[in-house]
Nucleic acid binder design. Structure first.
Lengths: 118, 118
DNA sequence: AGCTATAGGGATAATTTTAGCCCTATGCTA
DNA sequence: TAGCATAGGGCTAAAATTATCCCTATAGCT
């Protein structure tokens, strides 16, 4: 995440938003958090196919871009809560439009010639 | 593109649209084609940082998902033209919303705490 | 003859992303 | 005491994506 060999050029808006939400689990995380699931352990249970590690990484990236906010409670066992910032909330309609289009695509077989889902 | 070790699960719409437009150059290609640039050589000139190979690969994927259509003219030297299908056109507003959000993000510095663009 | 341009695609290397381990610490409960 | 849950993060391996090279073929131009 720090020393890339090939620099990213976030030249256009498209590249920028892809950088922000393009991770494998990021849209899921944003969606989950927007629905009130705040704690890492909850998010992990909601995405059992992802490892804790990756979720943590992608949460950190989202936090870095100002999409979510993190509150650490100084208790034991540790407690952490994430929530969407206003910037993060402004992303919700975008994600919704994307998801809607994708859902339409999925529901409409015959449109996708070589869909080898596996 | 054929034998992946880890199967993709295109379970939700979000995963589906990411699979379709998630490639590094795909949004650019769709955008370019929507603006009337049809031939591979044109697209290549418009995206000089991408290699011919990658553009060709991503065009093939877009074609496979029914986003663009390819017409091969049986002439020499070879001539090929791509165009958006109606499905591809239905994607334009989605891409536009995404690009708009990203552009807003770029234009609004201070929103992004740890943006290490490099 | 040697150069250009055109488009396709094989083979492999480089790079980035994701997965899968490990270990830290503490308080609770069986 | 042993096991569980909680959250963070180092380290390495696996997998996926992109980049970079190679070659095919033909027509036109100098």
């Amino acid at each position: 995440m720090s020393d890339r060999k090939i620099p990213k050029d976030l030249d256009c808006g498209m590249a920028m938003i892809m950088e922000i939400i393009g991770g494998k689990w990021k849209p899921c995380l944003i969606h989950n958090i927007s629905r009130g699931y705040k704690r890492p352990s909850e998010l992990q249970r909601l995405n059992p196919k992802a490892t804790r590690r990756v979720l943590y990484q992608q949460l950190t990236e989202l936090e870095g871009y100002g999409i979510i906010e993190k509150v650490i409670f100084p208790v034991l066992p540790p407690k952490v809560e994430y929530s969407l910032t206003s910037l993060g909330m402004s992303l919700l309609p975008v994600i919704r439009v994307m998801d809607d289009w994708g859902t339409q695509y999925l529901e409409n077989p015959g449109q996708h010639p070589t869909l080898k889902t596996a």
